[in-house]
Design a protein around this nucleic acid. Sequence first.
DNA 1: TTAGATGCAAAGGGTTTGCAACGTC
DNA 2: GACGTTGCAAACCCTTTGCATCTAA
Lengths: 135, 135
Amino acid sequence: MDRKKGFIRKTRQRDLILKTLRGTDTHPTADWIYEQVKKEMPNISLGTVYRNLGKLAELGEITELNFGSKYSRFDGNAENHYHFVCTECGKILDVKGCKVDKELEKCVEQNNNVEVDFHTTLFYGFCSDCKNKKG
Amino acid sequence: MDRKKGFIRKTRQRDLILKTLRGTDTHPTADWIYEQVKKEMPNISLGTVYRNLGKLAELGEITELNFGSKYSRFDGNAENHYHFVCTECGKILDVKGCKVDKELEKCVEQNNNVEVDFHTTLFYGFCSDCKNKKG
DNA sequence: TTAGATGCAAAGGGTTTGCAACGTC
DNA sequence: GACGTTGCAAACCCTTTGCATCTAA
């Protein structure tokens, strides 16, 4: 078997963490995932959760989101897509129906003498719930 | 004078912090600003720097950037603009020549039943220096 | 005079890490 | 049998906060 440097062993912990993250679209924090996973595997430690989330992100299986500086959130959908953050309730949503604009990257490259690999965009505002609640 | 709640008093510390931040385009961390400001005002404390950066951001005088989760960076340019992050050297640049696209916000609103106030975009890739260095 | 601001230092709190034991290949 | 992984807990480290003192208005 190919055991080159960076070889990743399959473990029950990692499988469960990935399954849990893939099973939600709430963009949870590491701690939320930890709490969920603990229900099925009570002895798992927070450190293990962090280590696995880090590895999964490194492998490109998931995405780590750093909105605001407080804590990281994780997205089981590794495909590049936009996010929306509700400034009222803090909810994070995947943006539907709007394609990631690769043309914009060309514009940035041409005007700034850089090479762009990808970009992330965050929209801020009111989600449908909070939009209705406010005056 | 109008001393409503949230009144902000003018202080030498805040002036110096703002001047320092406005005097660079490197999107520095709080600690870097602290070190710079200390040269002119040796007794200033890190706490004061954080408190003032927070207030200035709240007033809309500056922008707090939360790229990556490690620490916040600050931008003396409060006008909404795009940023570029070099994945090689970590440098952060203001993107020139590409307008913030308000049309995209309309697309997001229409397809996601939300109300968008503003959006931020981060481009990742190689800056001009690192582009040349790599193979 | 009064309430916002500062300096100092301790506390917070999400994340990382060292280490011995464990589990996968 | 190797070596990646785990659980535990302590360490990290950026940021926040309490409090007595200072100071702008």
